[in-house]
Design a protein around this nucleic acid. Structure first.
Length: 420
RNA sequence: GUGGCUGUAGCUCAAUGGCGGAGCAUCGGAUUGUGGUUCCGAGGGUUGCGGGUUCAAGUCCCGUCAGCCACCCCA
């Protein structure tokens, strides 16, 4: 029979990696609380239209990377490929735009994209997603950058780079697009195949290309950054000023472009060289038109997403737990009969008492206790029962004591002797 | 979606086209009821799957699936 395994790009998260996941989540929750963010839990499945409308129907995500299917009722549904769309939907559905002047929320959970797996890229992956609705001021842009730095600092991640840029608003982007297309038309022969395609669909993305020839061409090209409208330029300058006030160092990268259609003004990316080709592990930006485009009132928005798998790869190994465990070794039916009372007594006191379910030789049980990393072993056999004691062996010091046979008293004594 | 590399025991890996092995791990034993070190022993395999070539395929060929890495894209 064929072994069933996970789907391609899906995996079990276990052991130390899971502990790191939990740590990242816990540290992040802490920071979000301090900064006034509310946690919300969103559905993993939404109507396909939500993503088509928000992410953009010509983006790669929507065109070829979504897990989309038709349900029994005939609706087209999609496993969320990112969280912002759902956040906006929820913001409007819950009427938050009417209830509060601004909204700070975060969520975390699995996202799904049907891509070819590689280092740091899975079909099911996890994001922590933070969004602020209703604040136009660049102060909040800087606050998010600062928040990221605090968060990474607490996790002990030191080697990373924060890059920022502005992709302008609708008006400066529209007017620049013509300039850009005109420029690239004159240099068409030097662009790679992919960039020729980008030229048709989304010329800004040519700046993202890794092809050397294309990088040379874009080096000569005008940058959107240099032809921002007055408002966008002011926004970016204020943003930079606030970042300085927060004391965070960032680099301005005029090439930085994001792949989703909804970004406006501030965009940013946090990268690490320790990650392989997929080196961005946090990214985000402002999306001042999205809420309006999704049918809500014109509302500014900004947010970012943390790629948890990628971030976890940067975490140092966790220090070994010093959890104190105790083992109960039983020899003979009479001793085994004492197992349940002992188990109840130790559980009541919060002690992790391990034991062998099967009746095994004492040697085997001792070896098992050692394998499990138990510092103490309670030994009970016919001799002890006759004497009315339980033997307590300290596995590191190799010393043995006698404890009372009574389970409650024995556990009490064990606690007293060893500070368990 | 494209390309390169790789699939052999739970893990890491050997095996010229000729009887599928080792180390680690697991389990058992080494004076009766005492762990780690040491010694002895045991279990564990449809060589990813399906075809083909051959007297003979883990090995060569084709297909397929999966993993890794890169492209692409993105967190």
């Amino acid at each position: 029979m064929e072994k069933i395994r996970t789907l391609r790009g899906f995996r079990d998260i276990v052991g130390e990696e899971l502990e790191k996941f939990r740590r990242v989540e816990a540290v992040f929750r802490g920071h979000c609380g301090i900064l006034g963010f509310r946690e919300i839990e969103l559905p993993v499945l939404e109507k396909t239209e939500l993503f088509v409308r928000s992410i953009g129907d010509t983006t790669d995500i929507v065109e070829k990377e979504m897990f989309t299917f038709t349900d029994i009722g005939g609706d087209s549904l999609t496993m969320r490929p990112e969280a912002t769309a759902g956040m906006v939907r929820s913001y409007l559905q819950e009427g938050l735009h009417a209830k509060e002047r601004m909204t700070k929320v975060f969520t975390m959970g699995p996202m799904f994209r049907h891509e070819r797996p590689q280092k740091g890229r899975y079909r099911e992956f996890h994001q922590i997603d933070v969004e602020v609705f209703g604040v136009k001021e660049p102060l909040v842009d800087a606050e998010l950058i600062w928040m990221i730095r605090m968060f990474l600092g607490e996790l002990g991640v030191e080697k990373y780079r924060i890059e920022v840029n502005s992709v302008g608003c609708k008006t400066c982007r529209e007017s620049f697009r013509g300039v850009l297309v005109d420029f690239f038309e004159t240099r068409k022969g030097e662009l790679c195949e992919d960039c020729l395609r980008r030229l048709e669909r989304n010329p800004l993305r040519i700046f993202d290309c890794k092809n050397e020839q294309c990088i040379r061409v874009t080096g000569d090209s005008p940058f959107l950054f240099d032809s921002l409208c007055g408002e966008c330029r002011d926004h970016f300058e204020l943003f930079q000023g606030y970042i300085e006030d927060f004391g965070v160092s960032v680099e301005t990268n005029k090439r930085l472009v994001r792949g989703l259609d909804y970004y406006t003004k501030t965009v940013f990316e946090v990268t690490s060289d320790d990650l392989g080709a997929q080196k961005a592990f946090i990214a985000g930006g402002r999306y001042d038109n999205l809420v309006g485009e999704m049918g809500g009132p014109a509302t500014a928005g900004i947010g970012f997403a943390v790629g948890v798998e990628r971030l976890v790869m940067l975490l140092a190994p966790l220090s070994g737990k010093t959890e104190k465990r105790c083992f109960f070794a039983h020899v003979g039916d009479q001793a085994r009969g004492r197992l349940i009372p002992l188990l109840k007594a130790s559980a009541a006191r919060g002690i992790n008492l391990l034991y062998s379910y099967e009746a095994k030789s004492l040697k085997s049980q001792m070896r098992y206790a050692d394998n499990l990393g138990c510092g103490f072993v309670l030994i009970l056999g016919d001799d002890e029962i006759q004497k009315g004691v339980i033997v307590l062996r300290d596995m590191t010091g190799k010393t043995q004591h006698e404890l009372p046979l009574d389970p409650e008293k024995a556990i009490e004594e064990l606690e007293r002797l060893n500070g368990l």
